[in-house]
Amino acid sequence: MAGRTTRGESLWLRYMVLGSWALVCLVPMLWFLSIGLRPRTEIITPQPVYWPTFSLDAWHALWSDWPIGAYLRNSVLAVAGSVVIDLILAIPAAYSLTRYEYRGREDIGFYILSTRMMAPAIVAIPIFFLFRNLGLLDSVWALMLVYAAINLSVVTWILRSYMMDIPKELEDAARTDGASDLRILWEIIIPVTLPGIITAAVIAAIFAINEFLFTLLIASTANAYTMSVALANFTGGSDGIIYNAIALVSFLAFLPIFILVVLIQKNLSRGLTMGAVKG
């Protein structure tokens, strides 16, 4: 009985600590939501407001004054497309970097990573001209390609680290069982790496949804404006800084990532290789 009480108390304490931390992380988001749902005069008043008034006016105004639907669509299309491109390229690349032995393998791996180290401003202007010559300025397709390029190195390296944990024996077994390299990749490596693939995809999606510089460069109208660049529109112009809109759009951009992470949280921490080898 005594032991049980202690355990109950330590559990309670654990939830207290974790709950407080969750609150600290979530407060900014709730604050944004409250800014978004209150009248502008109330937000910018220097006196503290004890009884806030909530209304959906700002929300309706946002949708009627701005092409928010187009921004959302652009964001989703560009981000999802870029993640798909990344996975298609990075899965074979990571597998090659993990398993095949060839000259300069480590150098190629490092080169891929080094593309991430470059300051984005260095390639900003060449990329602008590149897409102008391709006739892809102000297009979602261009954003897709740029996001994919930015995240390819990260995705490749995450997948590589997951694939390096797969025991070589598993592939040897598949090979003696009669599987070709492609079959091994498709039937063994990809299913076993699935948690890593999901992790990499979510991280790439977060980076992509937050991307600003290149999007600003490429997009010039609602054809290609994404949520992150749309935010910049709310700071200038005749209306001044539109705090409600900034808060609401930020919240909208945050929400899908939040839901995604909660949904796959189990997958992120699940070790699928368990039971493959003695462990």
Partner: peptide, 20 residues
């Protein structure tokens, strides 16, 4: 001749069962 083209079957120290 590649392993998959030889008619051999192998059992490994770590079992090497496909976990998926």
């Amino acid at each position: 001749l590649d392993a998959r083209d030889r008619d051999v079957a192998m059992v490994f120290q770590g079992y090497a069962l496909y976990p998926n």
